[in-house]
């Protein structure tokens, strides 16, 4: 294990213990005046590690949520949403499709913001509303979180509407139905799926690279 790995593990440990002050001290020390250094060296790797542990059954979703929320709050202090330093990339939005189960959306949104992205949280929309808003606001990447199978299948309609409108927007999906059926994201016409928040952050990075 390298020194960097042990630092990431220690930071992840602070997050999982809900030790906000301890995590903040580590972030400030790592940042050395550059918030993005802290993002690259601590925040993203720690959230990836926590995501991996959740996949393996080592941590609970409640801990993933609280960890993401702490990271989001700390990064908001170091790098406010209005800061021009926020990563300049295609517009990113996240939404629920006709569903009130918001946990997955909030975890991914927090992880993306903690990773330096500017994300528009559109809450709960129908497929028609979501597609229209993507087109109207010229969003480049839209993330859709679903708990119910019915909501997951609605992604197909979003894809069709975006294609019909000539939108080049990328769709990234996540949530239980996509976890239990690994083929589902392709079937509904998504461009990628994130099994956890860190995977969603990586999928966004890949889409950004393709779009820019």
């Amino acid at each position: 294990m390298t020194g960097a790995d042990s630092g990431v593990d220690f930071f992840a440990g602070r997050l999982l213990a809900l030790d906000r002050l301890g995590a903040e001290r580590m972030l400030l020390k790592e940042a050395q005046g550059s918030p993005f250094r802290a993002v690259e060296c601590l925040v993203v790797p720690a959230l990836e590690e926590i995501g991996r542990r959740w996949e393996r059954g080592g941590v609970a979703l409640a801990q993933v949520y609280m960890s993401s929320r702490i990271c989001e709050e700390l990064m908001e202090e170091m790098l406010p949403a209005s800061s021009p330093e926020r990563i300049r990339c295609p517009k990113i939005a996240i939404a629920l499709l006709d569903d009130y189960h918001a946990l997955g959306k909030m975890i991914v949104c927090a992880a993306l913001r903690a990773s330096g992205c500017a994300v528009r949280d559109w809450g709960r929309l129908t497929a028609e509303e979501l597609a229209a808003q993507v087109v109207r606001e010229q969003v480049g990447i839209v993330l859709i979180s679903a708990l119910m199978l019915r909501s997951a299948l609605q992604v197909r309609k979003v894809r069709q509407l975006l294609d019909a409108a000539g939108s080049p927007a990328k769709i990234i999906v996540g949530g239980a139905p996509f976890r239990f059926d690994p083929e589902l994201w392709r079937e509904v016409g998504a461009d990628a799926a994130g099994g956890n928040a860190a995977e969603a952050v990586r999928a966004v990075a890949r889409c950004v690279a393709e779009l820019t």
Binding site: W54, A60, L61, A62
Partner: peptide
């Protein structure tokens, strides 16, 4: 335990 830590 996927959802809530077992100790809680």
């Amino acid at each position: 335990p996927d959802m809530i830590p077992p100790e809680i």
